[in-house]
């Protein structure tokens, strides 16, 4: 989780990623941030995020992202 928070803070500083649960809905992460984020997550966690996983539910909170990462790592 710490690694994920580090990436998020690097890409979009100044957001409370630990507690925020509407990152996409509240426009705290835009499409450009998602492009960066996907590239960084794949590099760091050694998995592939397919295009179908790019949905708000998977990126609205750090927790949701972590769940997606773990699910894709198991795949």
């Amino acid at each position: 989780m710490n690694e994920l928070l580090e990436i998020l803070n690097d890409i979009q500083p100044g957001v409370d990623f630990e507690n925020e649960t509407h990152l996409i809905d509240n426009h705290l992460l835009d499409s450009l941030s998602i492009i960066s984020l996907v590239a960084e997550l794949e590099d760091t966690f050694d998995m592939t995020i397919p295009a179908v996983e790019i949905i708000p539910d998977n990126f609205n909170s750090a927790e949701a992202m972590m769940e997606m990462i773990q699910r894709l790592q198991e795949d």
């Binding site: 890409i11 979009q12 450009l32 941030s33 492009i35 960066s36 996907v38 590239a39 960084e40 590099d43």
Partner: peptide
């Protein structure tokens, strides 16, 4: 989300920053 574009995003972000880096691939 293609492989080459993801690589481009990663390297461009380091050189051009958080805004213009991903903008390149986008």
């Amino acid at each position: 989300m293609s492989g080459p574009m993801k690589k481009l995003t990663g390297s461009a972000r380091k050189k051009l920053g958080n805004h213009f880096g991903p903008l390149l691939a986008g």
